[in-house]
Design a protein around this nucleic acid. Structure first.
Lengths: 325, 325
DNA sequence: ATGAAAGCGCTAACAA
DNA sequence: TTGTTAGCGCTTTCAT
């Protein structure tokens, strides 16, 4: 069995409360005593038990991170960044995957609640109502969904869409299709709102589509039928699938149709042609979300929700080119 | 504040121990009482506090999962599978990324130890000695590294290499290069051992190399210098980089050189040519590792380490073809 | 600066 | 079947 605070107390001839103070309020203990205790603790390999500590302090020093699908390449950089950022602040993080299932999401949040100081909800599938309800039990930060009264991290995909379309217009494109994402996706809605607001183009909105390679592949015919010269896809996976589908039908990218994706996932720069894309600040989102969450946690009852909107930017690669004559 | 066991006890007019039993040993309590307690608990939104429970039972129902790099596409499927499998067994999982730093790895394990029943170590960078030492405090399962006396999950990459080379030989290739991984990688060593043991080929071992796209790109010249007609790369990322490097030099894949990767990551089937690869059973590894770990946890002191070796298989796609005339 | 004592939420003998 | 009691490892008043 690992050493407890009592072992250390006994070995150093002081009371447990002194050992406790040595770790949680060092300035309250005589330097001499402190050093002795520290040395003995080191010797015994003592580490404070965080769970036990949490019982009295109410702070677990754990965070929950809930995502829809870990294996979607969009998430790992976010998870990595959030986790690294949390570690610097002495927090551990539970990662849970809901498999896109709202039921699982809810269950997970409930069982996690007691063990964490706060939860990071990424692209939640739960209803607003449900989220607000759960928010009474534990501080939340929501990523990629707008929720009144809750701390939120948004990526400015609306502006990203704008940049992408401007880029296409510069290349001479006027007939442009937007390959929408899943129904009810906040991101997808943002994109179409932004696109619709732009002057000088003829916009076809195609969808909803599954946000996967297959979704893009399946949309190839619809894209051809729409008679456009350029496409902005909901995400890179779909864009890649679309390029594949067009290729199968003998349509060259960007020769005959230009394609832009969103996310800037790794595969996007590995495929050929390399994908032009709207880069999402996933790492920054992870860090920011942790910051906001820890802010909430620190504030306690007086917590006031914050909104962070992170900039996106366009990465021009090889899947976009001048409009064909 | 969320409801505690005491609130439920008070509201249902029974003692806390009865409430406790209702949840942890339902058969010991009168059905009538049980239902009443359950109803009231439900009403109050009571959920047992796992951390508090852990204090007395010694079981946290948490697992630690430590990986070298979450954003390496190899890991997410493993994490996802492990996490899902753990959830079914009512376990939560802490995920931590060491950023390939042994120091961080050790620190992480130490701080996590008290909060988990066991730790999953994936492709550890720590020395064997250090791991064995830490293993005294908490049950471990090691993935992708052979460690005597510890439960281990291995993927049979040796056989995978064999399959890949046989495939190449069938296509007529005789001069084959092995693009090695990082120095000291168990996987890399397995591959070269297997390759060396094969008859009828002229093998060049090139490396060590960084296990990244860039590592493959940088190895393109060495491959050309080796005058081979086929290459087996340490992983898909390197294979993809190599294809890119060869392409830049005007060398066609598979026209002039065939390339095989290892891992079967998503980008591999998105690039062109689609990558022939040795598929690693990452999901199965995640599940198996959790099983072995839970087995250890359940066994307590009498625990006996197990070794699971998971089969790999070859996926033939477009980056391999007949040897050029 | 340190010790004594109570208590966090829960479980686990032991009685009754 | 249920209640009583002690205690898990730690923090936190309150004394001293």
């Amino acid at each position: 069995m690992a050493a407890t605070i009592r072992d250390v107390a006994r070995a150093s001839g002081v009371h447990v409360s002194t050992v406790s103070r040595t770790f949680s309020a060092p300035h309250l203990v005589n330097p001499e005593t402190r050093n002795r205790v520290l040395a003995i603790a080191e010797d015994l390999g003592y580490r404070p038990n965080r769970a036990a500590r949490a019982l009295t302090t109410g702070r677990t020093h754990n965070l929950g991170l809930i995502v829809a699908d870990i294996s979607n390449p969009f998430f790992p950089p976010l998870i990595k960044a959030a986790q690294a950022h949390a570690r610097l602040r002495d927090y551990h993080v539970f990662v849970a995957d809901t498999d896109e299932d709202p039921q699982v999401e809810e269950e997970l949040i409930q069982t996690l609640t007691k063990q964490v100081d706060g939860v990071l909800l990424c692209s939640p599938r739960l209803s607003n109502r449900a989220i607000e309800k759960l928010g009474e039990d534990v501080p939340f930060v929501v990523v990629n969904r707008r929720l009144k009264g809750m701390s939120t991290v948004l990526m400015d995909v609306g502006n990203g869409a704008r940049l992408a379309i401007e880029h296409l217009m510069t290349l001479g494109h006027r007939r442009i299709a937007l390959l929408a994402g899943p129904a009810g996706s906040w991101t997808s809605r943002e994109m179409s709102d932004a696109a619709r607001a732009m002057d000088g183009i003829e916009l076809s909105i195609l969808g909803p589509n599954s946000p996967t390679e297959h979704g893009g592949l399946a949309a190839a015919d619809a894209v051809l039928a729409a008679d456009v010269t350029a496409v902005l896809a909901y995400n890179d996976l779909m864009a890649i699938g679309l390029v594949e589908g067009l290729d199968e039908r003998g349509v060259e990218v960007p020769g005959r149709i230009s394609v832009v994706g969103v996310d800037d996932i790794v595969p996007g720069r590995l495929t050929r042609p390399k994908l032009t894309t709207v880069a999402m600040p996933t790492e920054a989102a992870g860090r920011t979300a942790v910051d906001l969450l820890l802010q909430l946690v620190g504030a306690g009852e007086t917590a006031t929700p914050a909104l962070a909107t992170l900039a996106t930017h366009l990465i021009i690669r090889d899947s976009t080119g001048p409009v064909p004559p």
